[in-house]
């Protein structure tokens, strides 16, 4: 089946099977490796991508469902240098192994676009679908709060 979509601003025309999962197609055919394979059932969030402005778990989306859509991964966020949020993640030692980082960066990016000055509860809620086993979340939450417009809640 034909799949035409945009990944980080680049258009792709691919031939995929009906059962192909978007996560696998992105990783194997569309040259982005930041969405990770962690559980393949939507529990861990490490395959998070942004599709048309909203985060989705790419392991739960069929590739053909992405036809005509616009996808952003963390590679796309970093073309012109790190975002302010990424800079805060860096200075705050927010990540350790880094495997969950691409998904969490996107989940937090979406939150800040939707709600520029989130509360601690907002941040926890936005990240609750992205599992991190290393950090205990606290340094991640603190960085997102700091990235909020006021950062003073």
């Amino acid at each position: 089946m034909d799949l035409n979509f945009t990944v980080n601003g680049e258009t792709w025309a691919l031939d995929v099977a009906p059962a192909d999962v978007l996560l696998d197609v992105l990783r194997e055919k569309a040259a982005v490796k930041s969405p990770k394979i962690g559980c393949e059932r939507g529990d861990c969030g490490s395959c998070t991508i942004i599709m048309d402005g909203r985060t989705v778990r790419s392991c739960l989306v069929l590739a053909v469902e992405a036809d005509g859509h616009e996808i952003t991964t963390v590679e796309g966020l970093s073309f012109d240098g790190l975002s302010r949020l990424q800079g805060l993640f860096l200075s705050n030692n927010s990540f350790q192994c880094g495997f969950c980082a691409p998904g969490i960066v996107l989940a937090a990016t979406e939150l800040l676009e939707r709600k520029p000055n989130p509360s601690r509860h907002d941040v926890q809620e936005a990240l609750a679908g992205n599992l991190c086993r290393c950090t205990g979340y606290e340094p991640i939450i603190e960085a997102v709060l700091a990235a909020g417009a006021g950062g003073d809640q």
Partner: peptide, 10 residues
Amino acid sequence: DGVEKISGAA
């Protein structure tokens, strides 16, 4: 390893 990990390069 920080920049690699938050930019998807790792």
